[in-house]
Amino acid sequence: MTASHIGKLIKYLILIVFAIIFLTPVYVMIVTSLKPLDEVSLADMWTLPSAIDFSSYAHAFKNLAPNLMNSIYLVVPATLLSALLGAMNGYVLSKWKFKGSDLIFTVILFGMFIPYQSILIPMIQFLRTIDLYNTIPGLILVHVVYGLPITTLMFRNFYANIPDEMIESAKIDGASFLGVFRHIIIPLSITGFVVVAIWQFTNIWNEFLFAVTITTSDKQPVMVALQNLSGSQIVQWNVQMAGALLAALPTLLVYIFLGKYFVRGLLAGSVKG
């Protein structure tokens, strides 16, 4: 009895220590971002602010606001489009398998793992040719295309759980390919869409390599602006922390309120699902 109590205590202790370590960066971010300018010094990094001051948020927001908007213009259409295409592909690859469809799936899936450096130089030349370089639509195109493998994978695994009998009986009742998709698959896909949309939203919002190479200055998404903010020597680091929090806020909120779906997406990202 007591031995198991001690065991439990030790388990809690380990978990609490790690939880504190994991939360330390958040503490520093919040504390620093709330300090008035004259309390911001590296020596006082860990101390609480004497008074709560939002001026660094105002400063960071003024710097990041246009880029936050860019990110929203990018993320919303890119997420919706890649989810829709993923649903179409997943439907075919799970319920309308044909000879070679598994091979096609593997060929698509490989695109999820490539280092994007290996397509970046042609991509930029291509975007210049079609006049989409340094535009948000250009970035949307890139994220839709390279989002296809993961959204296809997620929807394929999701649809694999819908019993084939449902599809078969609908077919016998005369429903066509599109009819089954519209009347059976789509209504059953709400959770799938939520999971995929959250995953794509988070990934595209947080993405940096495409953002920094395809856009410049006023077209840049927020992560590039944040990097610029922290890279510049003249910006106080309380502003950097406030900026980091602002830039992270949308995905953090999604995680806090829809964490269950986020984790499902995370698990679906491993191939076997």
Partner: peptide, 24 residues
């Protein structure tokens, strides 16, 4: 609670992580 604490950094960008840990 523990699970959520250990999982939340997954929702962040590597850029945010880099900016914060650069100071830590």
């Amino acid at each position: 609670i523990f699970r959520n604490i250990f999982l939340f950094p997954m929702a962040l960008s590597f850029i945010v992580t880099g900016v914060v840990w650069q100071w830590l």
